[in-house]
Amino acid sequence: MMCNDLDSITDALAGLTAPTAPGLADRIFGSWLTAPSRLGAAFVAFTGAGVQFVRSAESVRGDATVFAEAYRDRFGRPLRPAHRAPARLLVALQRALQGRQTPVRLDLRGLSEFERDVLTATSRIPAGQTRPYGWVAREAGRARAVRAVGSVLARNPVPLLIPCHRVVRADGLLGDYMFGAEHKEQLLRAEQVNLDEVAALARQGVYFVGSNTTGVVCFPTCHDARRITPAHRHGFRTIGTAVAAGYRPCRHCRPTTETV
């Protein structure tokens, strides 16, 4: 190398200036847009890694600045309007926000491991079914952290995309929802959850339903439980009594993890 006098070294150093890093700004800014959802218009923020934040327009009084402020407080990132949303993301997002089973890429960085586990467990609840908070806690690997699950879901960054409205109280009541309990009921009814039946069973002290032909016991909203004809239907207060009566916990809705 010919760099043996200081001038040629400084010349060579000046040549080390980098070109602009493509996509650097995309890694700094979040982008926002509005999209129709099952709760009316929704504000959505996303990064290159996926959807990061969803709020119904109603919950931020239809005000983009309120949404942006909530986003900045939470993620510490500047936000700009999305001028060119990735087309595939947009299509998937619109389908998912309207309740269709469509995988959408999510950006869940910055959440704790527990928060991520809770959201992952919640995302596995099928449409038209509900699970108690305690079920989510157990699926997330911390069976006793039932209240903590409630706190995590109350802060769910991506409601509707991760269906926290499908997580309900163990006593048959629906419990709270970040956008209001009435919206939780509306969403579940729209998914054909028979809330009246669930409530009626709860009034009789029934929280699990088994079939005496298959010998399987489920949550009442489980796809398999809804197919049991009335003649073969047996209600149970606890999973323990069902198991004692010779029933096997359903492998789909997993009312308990204890192997029998």
Binding site: L16, T17, A18, T20, A21, A25, I28, R72, L79
Partner: peptide, 18 residues
């Protein structure tokens, strides 16, 4: 702040990245 910051990034990203 946010739109101003977009200008800041545009103006200084090359120096910062270099």
């Amino acid at each position: 702040l946010d739109s101003g910051f977009a200008d800041v990034v545009r103006t200084h990203e090359r120096v910062v990245y270099s």
